[in-house]
């Protein structure tokens, strides 16, 4: 069981969810409520023993999301400064993932409507892009330069103004 239940909130009710590849997870209701989609399902009495099926979220990212929600739900109200700091540290460690997992989290958090996690994943993605050359970004994210030589030439001309600030990547121009 992937759900961290050590420091759950007041609610004893456990919510079951099922990943797209059939794995079952459990989390406290307070944690599930951090997902807009799950909250609506719970409000509509769709949460039963069989578990809420999440058709587009695979087990690996779902395990992470359950962890995230459980941690954040347990620490959601009346935070002391130390607790807030701890939560920040948790977030920073939590999002140290490879680009594949980052992609899964971006899509899943968006689908499930977990606002805090969405922000965290988006910020992490932007941080990965920032301060890098286009070539480095292609490497990091596996983006293939699919421009034809003609297009490359056109882009170089078109972006001459930007390349006055930063030198053009070697594969272009």
């Amino acid at each position: 069981m992937a759900a961290a239940t050590d420091d759950a909130g007041d609610s004893n009710e456990m919510i079951r969810v099922v990943s797209s590849d059939g794995e079952h997870f459990e989390m406290p209701e307070a944690a599930a409520n951090l997902s807009l989609v799950l909250r609506h399902m719970i409000e509509d009495d769709c949460a039963d023993a069989a578990g809420i099926p999440l058709a587009v979220v695979a087990a690996k990212p779902l395990a992470k999301i359950v962890d995230y929600c459980t941690k954040h739900a347990a620490k959601s109200s009346g935070l002391t400064i130390e607790e807030a700091e701890e939560l920040k540290r948790f977030d920073a460690e939590f999002i140290e993932v490879d680009t594949d997992m980052l992609y899964d989290l971006l899509v899943a958090a968006d689908f499930m409507g977990v606002e805090g996690l969405s922000k965290l994943a988006v910020q992490r993605t932007a941080d990965l892009i920032k301060g890098k050359t286009p070539e480095q970004n292609r490497e990091t994210f596996g983006i293939v330069n699919d421009f034809t030589p003609e297009e490359e030439e056109e882009i170089c001309k078109e972006n001459e103004w930007a390349f006055q600030i930063t030198k053009p990547p070697s594969r272009l121009c």
Partner: peptide, 8 residues
């Protein structure tokens, strides 16, 4: 702006 030269 530089994201514009990553790919099509």
């Amino acid at each position: 702006v530089l994201t514009g030269i990553l790919s099509t």
